[in-house]
C-alpha cells in the first residue's frame, strides 16, 4: 500500500516534468537562439582544443593531423622567453590591479564630500567620459602625448633640460603607458560603483558622528571606509581572478618591434604564432595553457572569497 502510493508519486512527478516542460515551450523558444549560438561558437571550437596535441596539417584537417602529445607544451615551456611572457602578462594585470584599486575609492570619497551639486556633476561626468573612447583612440592620444617631437611630456621635460624620450620605443615605458592609459580611461567609471555604495551609508550614524563633532576626515575614516570595505574587497578579489587574462587588443596597439621585450604578453603571442605564423597547434597549446591558468586563478579566488565574505561567483 505504502509503496504504491510512493510509486504513484514518483510517476506523477516524472510525468509532471514533461508536462511542465511542455507547458514552458515558449520559454524554450526564448532560449533557443542563445543556446544555438552558445553551442556553435562557444562549445563548437572546444573540440579544436585537441589541436594543442597535434601537428596541424591543412590538407588533413583537425581530425586527420598526426598526434604529437605534449610536444607543443614542452616547446613553449622551454622557450628562452617563456618567463618574460609570463612576467609581462602578470605585470600589466596583477601589479596594475594592486596599484589601481585605491584610486577610484579615493575619487568616490572625494566626490561624496562635495556639497556643491553642479561641481560634483561636472567632475563626475567628465572623469568618466574617457570610458566611452576606444582603445585605438586612447593609445593614439598617448602616442601623441609621448611623441619625441612635440609630445607634451617631452616639451615639459625639455624645460628642465631632459633629452627627448621615445616612450613607445623602449621596454621600460610599456608598463607605464599601459597603466596610465588604463587609469585615465577607467578611473571615473570605476568610482561610480563606490559612489553607489557610499550612498547607502547609515544616515543616523552619520548624524550622530556630526553631533559629536567629528570632522570630515574622521567620518571618512571611521564610517565611510568601513561601509564600503566589503565592496572594495569583493571587487579586488574578483579582479584577481582575471590576473592572467590580459586581452590582446590594448597591447597590440602599444606594441612595436622596439618594445617587444616588455609588450609581448600571452595573448599577443597566441595571436602572433597562431594567426600570423599559422602554427595552429602550438598557438592552441599556449592558449590552452593560458585558459587553464585563468581557471585555476578564478577557482582559487572564488574559494578564498567564499571564505572571506561569503560572496562567491558561483
Amino acid at each position: 500500500m505504502k509503496t504504491s502510493v510512493k510509486q504513484e508519486l514518483t510517476l506523477n512527478r516524472k510525468k509532471s516534468v514533461w508536462v511542465r516542460m511542455a507547458s514552458q515551450w515558449q520559454l524554450y523558444v526564448f532560449l533557443l537562439p542563445a543556446m544555438t549560438f552558445l553551442a556553435i561558437f562557444s562549445y563548437g571550437p572546444m573540440y579544436g582544443i585537441i589541436l594543442a596535441f597535434k601537428e596541424y596539417m591543412p590538407s588533413l584537417g583537425i581530425m586527420g593531423s598526426p598526434w604529437v602529445g605534449f610536444d607543443h607544451f614542452e616547446r613553449f615551456f622551454h622557450l628562452p622567453k617563456f618567463w618574460t611572457y609570463i612576467w609581462n602578462t602578470v605585470k600589466v594585470s596583477a601589479l596594475i590591479t594592486i596599484i589601481d584599486f585605491p584610486f577610484p575609492v579615493i575619487l568616490a570619497l572625494m566626490l561624496h564630500h562635495v556639497n556643491c551639486k553642479w561641481y560634483k556633476k561636472l567632475v563626475q561626468n567628465f572623469t568618466y567620459l574617457p570610458y566611452m573612447l576606444s582603445l585605438v583612440v586612447v593609445i593614439n592620444i598617448a602616442r601623441v602625448f609621448c611623441s619625441p617631437t612635440g609630445g607634451v611630456f617631452n616639451i615639459i621635460g625639455g624645460w628642465f633640460g631632459v633629452d627627448p624620450i621615445n616612450f613607445f620605443g623602449e621596454d621600460k615605458y610599456v608598463f607605464w603607458i599601459y597603466w596610465f592609459t588604463g587609469l585615465w580611461q577607467g578611473l571615473g567609471y570605476s568610482a561610480v560603483i563606490y559612489l553607489a555604495a557610499l550612498s547607502g551609508v547609515d544616515q543616523e550614524q552619520l548624524e550622530a558622528a556630526k553631533i559629536d563633532g567629528a570632522n570630515q576626515l574622521r567620518i571618512i575614516w571611521s564610517i565611510e571606509i568601513p561601509a564600503i570595505a566589503d565592496t572594495v574587497i569583493i571587487l579586488l578579489i574578483l579582479a584577481f581572478g582575471r590576473i592572467f587574462s590580459v586581452g590582446a587588443d590594448k597591447m597590440l596597439l602599444i606594441q612595436n618591434s622596439a618594445n617587444l621585450g616588455a609588450s609581448e604578453v600571452l595573448s599577443t603571442y597566441v595571436y602572433k604564432v597562431g594567426l600570423l605564423d599559422a602554427q595552429f597547434g602550438f598557438s592552441t597549446a599556449v592558449n590552452l595553457f593560458n585558459t587553464l591558468v585563468n581557471i585555476i586563478c578564478l577557482l582559487t579566488v572564488n574559494w578564498i572569497s567564499g571564505k572571506v565574505s561569503e560572496t562567491s561567483l558561483f
Binding site: 579544436g48 583537425i62 594567426l275
Partner: peptide
C-alpha cells in the same frame, strides 16, 4: 570561463 581559444574559433 572556458573557451576553445583563438585558433579553434578562427578555423571554425
Amino acid at each position: 570561463y572556458f573557451s576553445g581559444g583563438v585558433v579553434p574559433l578562427y578555423l571554425l
